[in-house]
Simulated assay, not measured.
Amino acid sequence: MSSHKSHRRRGAAPVSGNPKFYGRHAVYAALDNPDRRLIKLWGTREELGKIVIPEGLAVQFADAADLARYVPKDAPHQGLVLEVAPMEDVWLTDALAVDDDTRPLLILDQVTDPHNVGAIFRTAAAFNAVAVITQDRHAPPESGALAKAASGALEVTPWVRVVNLARALEEIAEAGYWRIGLSGHATATLEQALTPGRNALVLGAEGDGMRHNIEEHCDQLAKLPISEQMESLNVSNAAAIALYAATVRRG
Rank of each mutant, 00 (worst) to 15 (best):
A166G: 10
E231R: 14
P225N: 08
Q60A: 13
E46K: 10
G79C: 10
I107F: 07
A119L: 06
F61V: 09
V162R: 00
N199V: 08
A245Q: 14
L154P: 04
V90K: 07
L80K: 03
D35R: 08
L108M: 06
L154W: 05
A150V: 09
G118T: 11
L201N: 05
I214V: 15
R250Y: 10
P140H: 10
A145Q: 07
L194G: 02
L165R: 07
A95R: 09
R161K: 15
E206V: 08
R250C: 09
T102A: 15
A186Y: 02
A149P: 09
R137S: 15
A168G: 05
L243H: 05
K148T: 10
L57Y: 03
V52F: 02
E171M: 08
H217N: 13
A13L: 10
A175T: 09
D101Y: 10
A95L: 06
P54E: 06
Q135Y: 00
S16M: 09
A75H: 05
P19V: 09
A175M: 07
A29Y: 00
D99K: 14
S151N: 09
G209Q: 02
H217K: 15
D35I: 00
G79Y: 06
K20D: 01
D101Q: 11
A13D: 07
R10P: 08
G118N: 11
A200W: 07
R103I: 06
T123E: 01
A240K: 01
I53F: 04
A186I: 03
A95Y: 05
H185C: 01
R211K: 13
L31H: 06
G152W: 02
Q60K: 11
G118Y: 08
S236Y: 04
N237S: 14
D89N: 14
E216I: 00
A200C: 14
L221C: 06
G209R: 01
I107H: 03
S236E: 07
L146G: 09
I53H: 07
A242E: 00
D35S: 05
A119Y: 04
V15H: 12
S3A: 15
A153Y: 03
P140G: 08
D208T: 15
T112S: 12
P19D: 05
S236Q: 06
E206R: 07
R161T: 10
N237A: 15
V59R: 04
S183A: 13
V156Y: 06
F61E: 14
I241M: 12
R167D: 09
F61C: 00
V163Y: 05
A131H: 04
L190H: 00
A166Q: 15
S183R: 10
E191R: 14
E83N: 00
A238M: 02
A75Q: 03
G197M: 04
P104Y: 08
V90L: 04
A147L: 10
S6G: 13
V117L: 05
Q220L: 11
A193W: 01
K148M: 11
D136N: 14
E88F: 01
Y244G: 02
N199M: 09
W91T: 11
G11S: 13
A149S: 15
K50L: 13
L194V: 06
A68W: 00
D63F: 08
N18Q: 13
Q78I: 01
G56L: 05
L194D: 03
E170A: 13
A242Y: 03
G176Q: 07
A64T: 11
W159G: 00
N18D: 03
Q229A: 12
S6H: 09
E206I: 10
G152Y: 00
A168R: 02
V132E: 08
A238P: 02
V71S: 10
K5N: 04
F127D: 04
